[in-house]
Amino acid sequence: SPKGPKSRKPLAERLGEYREDPSLTSKSPNVYRLPPDMKPIPCKPLFFDLALNWAEFPSLEDKLDGAAKKGQSNAG
C-alpha cells in the first residue's frame, strides 16, 4: 500500500484503516497532532443591544405640574 509503516499520519487521522503501528506501544505514540493545525472559523458577528435604548424614564410631565393642575380642578 502507498502508506507504509513509515507514514507519519497520526492515529486520529486514520481511524478507518487497520495497520500494525509499533509506535503506538512505544513511549512516544503518534496518536494526535499537537498543537492541531490552524483552521479558519466564522467570526462572531457584530450585534448591537438596541433594546437598552428603550430603557428610559416615562414622561413625568403630569407629575411636574400635577399640583398646579389639581389646584385648578379644585378651583373649577
Binding site: 413625568l60 407629575k63 411636574l64 405640574d65 400635577g66 399640583a67 398646579a68 389639581k70
Partner: peptide
C-alpha cells in the same frame, strides 16, 4: 403635593 412635584 408641592413637595412631591418638586421631588419629581
Amino acid at each position: 403635593e408641592a413637595n412631591l412635584s418638586a421631588l419629581y
